[in-house]
Design a protein around this nucleic acid. Structure first.
Length: 273
DNA sequence: GTCCGGGTAT
DNA sequence: ATACCCGGAC
């Protein structure tokens, strides 16, 4: 494992903060300290580029300004607002999270990552990000932008770089007194590297290509939910027609969406729960 | 049309 | 290890 000298750490921090001062992005979720707002932004950013999240973030918070309003929101309305974001499962998780926090945490998000990670839809990254951005906790966080920065800076000619080898460097270089600001700066630096110098993340051991989207279950699921978010109950054949894809595949995905808690069958029709 | 990104759950 | 989503770049 690589160790950093104090002077390497100093100049690295200076470089990252210099970039942040000059080119840091002015993003809406950086102007709030409401943990719920920050959580919403992080869930959205898991799956969508920054430019497309900003508008949706505002629309979402206008519709669901706090955890209590999200907890009692009808799922169909939530999915309508979520549409265009992809990964509907995360909207469902977010609603379940809101219900749990309202019922069991006095309506307040916990600040401890070990507690956050127990909530649905929150994994290691989001637990750390909320702890750092909403509560300024000096936790170690790894995401694609952070990974890119460290591979670019400290694993220059290496291939198959593992996160396990990067994490100690994230910890060593962390600005512990200003964790939130530091991670904002780090992520902006990483975003800049993507556009300027190709993508160092291809040298990550965790880099994978995704499978094709066309005719995939993902596409079928998306279309099924899109057909149902209007709120009108539809029969199996009506859904198959709306989706315009293989009937057996539609049936299989209807069953799966039922199991996950998106939809239920009412007589011969399906509706969003 | 083809390629691409990206945490979490299982 | 693999599934989940959609829109933007080309």
């Amino acid at each position: 494992m690589k160790r950093l000298t104090p002077s390497t750490i100093r100049s690295f921090r200076r470089k990252v903060y210099d970039h942040y001062r000059k080119q840091g992005r002015d993003l809406p979720w950086r102007k709030t300290d409401d943990p719920y707002h920050i959580l919403v932004s992080e869930i959205m950013l898991q799956q969508t580029q920054v430019e497309r999240v900003t508008g949706k973030y505002r629309e979402f918070l206008r519709a669901f300004p706090n955890l209590a309003s999200l907890a009692r929101a009808p799922l169909a309305r939530l999915l309508r607002i979520w549409s265009g974001m992809g990964y509907n499962r995360r909207a469902l998780s977010l609603k379940r999270l809101a219900q749990q926090v309202v019922a069991g945490h006095q309506g307040k998000l916990p600040a401890d990552p070990a507690e956050l990670i127990k909530l649905p839809g929150i994994g290691p990254y989001t637990a750390g990000a909320v702890a750092a951005f909403a509560f300024n906790k000096p936790v170690v966080v790894m995401d694609t932008n952070i990974r890119r920065v460290f591979i670019h800076e400290f694993f220059q000619d290496k291939k198959g770089v593992r996160d396990v080898d990067i994490l100690p460097l994230v910890e060593e270089t962390l600005d512990r007194k200003h964790a939130g600001r530091w991670y904002n700066a780090l992520m902006d630096f990483g975003a800049m590297l993507k556009s300027k110098e190709g993508n160092p993340n291809r040298r990550s051991a965790h880099y994978t290509r995704q499978s094709p989207f066309e005719n995939s279950n993902r596409q079928v699921r998306g279309r099924i939910l899109k057909a149902l978010v209007g709120g009108e109950p539809l029969t199996g054949p009506q859904i198959t027609k709306a989706v315009g894809m293989d009937r057996e595949q539609v049936k299989k995905n209807l069953a799966q969406l039922g199991k996950e808690g998106f939809i239920k069958k009412v007589g011969r029709t399906y509706v969003i729960i």
